[in-house]
Each structure stands twice: as structure tokens, then as C-alpha cells.
Simulated assay, not measured.
Amino acid sequence: MRIAILDDYQSVALSMADWSVLPAGVEVVSFRDHLHDEDALVARLEGFDAISRMRERTEFPRRVLERLPRLKLLLATGRRNSDTIDLAAATELGITVCSTASIPCFPVELTWGLVLALFRRIPFEHAAVQGGGWQSGLGRGLNGRTLGVVGLGTIGLPVARIGQAFGMEVIAWSRNLTAERAAEAGVARVSKEELLERSDAVTLHVPLTPESTHLIGEAELARMKSDAYLINTSRGPLIDEAALVRALKGRRIGGAGLDVFDVEPLPAEHPLRGLDNAVLTPHIGYVTEDNYRIYFTQTVENIQAYLAGKPMRVLMPGDKVLNFAH
């Protein structure tokens, strides 16, 4: 068996688990770069029996799976995979798809890292000190400010609770949020328009669907306060990226904290790079040693189980979010 590990950006996959437990003759090859071109991806993978992918970094629609006749085992990681792997096609083609657990709290932590970085100007003050300077501007406190949470689910709810702990007023909106659920969290449910107009920080925590694509566009950005911040640690296309660039360049909002983008890795010439009112991180919300050890340890377990004829943590057509114990 030949196994490909995709998008191993930090070259850590082989050190996050004990791959030596696999039988002799199993070859594991790690690829650090990401291939956007579908033909190049197929050419790279056509000689492998199994593929391990990191979260949703590489999509596997039917047209790709059909071009990989040797593929028998697709090793996914994380809880959400059905939107980017055609599970029905995999089943028809005889490809077993297995996944792993994931710890959901880490994007919450990064969200607050970005909020604090923006309000307290941490990257800019760090740069000032490193450059030989000292205090370069005035930060803003969180206490008494208003936090607008879009999506009060697995990530949004703890984000809201932390905002309350900082002394913020927390308001929330999503298409499916009820006033009762919001009240249980001590949060006021408001309209999308009111949330945008009142919030000092707007943070997005909803899944990417056709309905949520460009949830924040030109009109929504125009409703925000001129000094408000927009934070996105969910999925890049929730925001109309071109509209956001225009708003940031025109100083129509205070700034943005972004961990996710339309195209990843973010192209070197992208206009978001270099903007002094944007704090950017390279999609690291879930990227922790803790999660990686789960992902790759359970991936090795999934390979062992498959080779033993007893596949485990198998994803089937219709599966949405998996809650495997870690």
C-alpha cells in the first residue's frame, strides 16, 4: 500500500503519530505544498492506494475520485467532510472514507486572539518595540463594547460567553437562531441589520453553504460602524473578499481579523497583504499540536483497521457532522 499525506505545510505529519506500527511494505509519502490545479493533483495521486487529507484543504468531488482508480481508502480528518468529499461517489467507486475526531475549542481561542490583537493593537505595538520604538498609538478596551456574534453554535456560543466575561454586551443573529436559544445564553437575538449597526466587533461562526456565501458583502460592510472590526475564523467565502478589501482601503471600517480566505494559501500578491488595518493568520484556527496528534494517531488507527478488514470511523453518504470520541 502507498499512502499520500496531503498539505503537510509544517512537515509534521510523520512526527505526530507512530507510523512504524503499520505493516512492512506500507509506504507513506508526505507532500508539503498545496496543488490547486486538478490535473496536477490527479497526476500526483494516481499512484497511491490511500490518501490522507488535512481537513477541507483538498476537495474530492466525483470527477476527481473517478480519475483515481487505484484509490481504495480516503483518510479524512476533522468533523466536517461531507461538503468537500462526494461520499456517494466514493461508495459507488468502492472507496472507504474514514475520518477522525477534532477538538472544537481552538478556533474559539484564535477568534479572541484576533479580537484582542485588533482592539489592543498588539501586532503594531510589537513591531514598534522590535523596531526600536515605543508606544505608537492608542488601543481600545473591550469592557462596555458590543460584540455581534453571527452563529451561536459550537464555536459561537463559547465566543459569546468569553465576550460576556470581558464585560461586553453580546448580541447574536443567524438564520436559525431563536430568541429562546439566545436567551438561554444570556444573549439578545437581533436582526442581521441591527447586529451590524450596533456592534464594535462582528465575528462569524456559521458553516459555508450556498445561502451563507458572501453573507457579508458591500451592503453589510456599509452598515458597520466606521471603527468596528470584522473577524472571520470560519470560512473565507462568508465575506465578499473584494468588497472587504475596498472597505479596508477606504477606512470604512476599523479593521479585520482574518484566519480564512477565498484561496488558500493566500496568494503572495493578494491585496489583503500589507494592509495596516488587517491582522491575518494562515488558517490556524484548528492547527494545534493537540488536534494534529488526534488527527494522525486516529489516521494510523484507521489504516490499521482497514488493512485488518474492519474499517472504523467510516463516513457514509448522508453523514454531516461526526462526533467521534477522542
Rank of each mutant, 00 (worst) to 15 (best):
L230F: 10
S136Q: 15
L272S: 11
L71H: 01
E264F: 06
K249S: 12
R57A: 12
L71Q: 01
D37R: 00
K320V: 14
M16W: 03
L238D: 01
A117Y: 04
A76W: 02
G309H: 10
A219E: 14
G94P: 05
I253W: 00
I216N: 03
R252D: 08
K320W: 06
T209E: 09
H270P: 08
D83F: 00
L73W: 03
K320D: 13
V64F: 03
P158R: 02
Q135V: 11
Y306H: 11
R181W: 13
M16A: 14
R55D: 11
R53P: 01
G25I: 12
L157F: 12
R251C: 07
L118Y: 02
W134Q: 09
P61Y: 13
T213Y: 07
D18W: 09
H36N: 15
Y292Q: 13
T100W: 02
Q135M: 13
S234T: 08
N81E: 12
G285V: 08
S11I: 00
N323A: 12
G144P: 05
S15D: 15
G133A: 10
E269M: 06
P271K: 07
L272K: 13
N143H: 15
E301V: 06
E180P: 02
Y295T: 00
L215E: 05
P317N: 03
I284M: 14
L116W: 01
R273N: 11
R175D: 09
E197L: 08
W112P: 06
W19A: 08
F166G: 03
V26Q: 06
R70A: 15
M54V: 14
A243Q: 03
F119P: 04
S82T: 12
T203R: 01
D18T: 11
A247K: 00
L74G: 06
E169Q: 13
W19I: 03
L65P: 02
I95V: 14
E218I: 05
H283Q: 12
S20A: 15
A242R: 15
M316A: 15
Q304F: 00
P267M: 07
L41N: 03
A43D: 14
V170N: 04
I216L: 08
E38T: 15
S20W: 07
A101V: 11
G78S: 09
Y229S: 04
C98A: 13
V279F: 14
M16D: 07
M224Y: 10
N323H: 14
E264M: 08
D259K: 04
L280T: 05
N176T: 15
F166L: 04
H205M: 10
N277V: 06
P107W: 04
E193L: 08
T297E: 12
L230R: 05
A165W: 00
R252K: 13
E211R: 10
I51Y: 02
R2H: 12
E220F: 05
S99R: 01
P210D: 09
L71A: 02
D240P: 07
G148L: 12
E46P: 02
V149L: 07
K72M: 10
G254Y: 02
L248Y: 08
G163C: 05
E241S: 06
R57F: 09
T96C: 13
V287D: 15
V26W: 06
G153R: 09
S191V: 05
F261T: 03
V260N: 04
A88I: 09
K249Y: 03
S174M: 04
R161G: 04
S191E: 08
G236A: 08
R63N: 15
I103L: 11
N291P: 07
L73H: 14
A243Y: 02
D319G: 04
S136V: 14
E241V: 09
G131C: 08
R67D: 05
L272M: 11
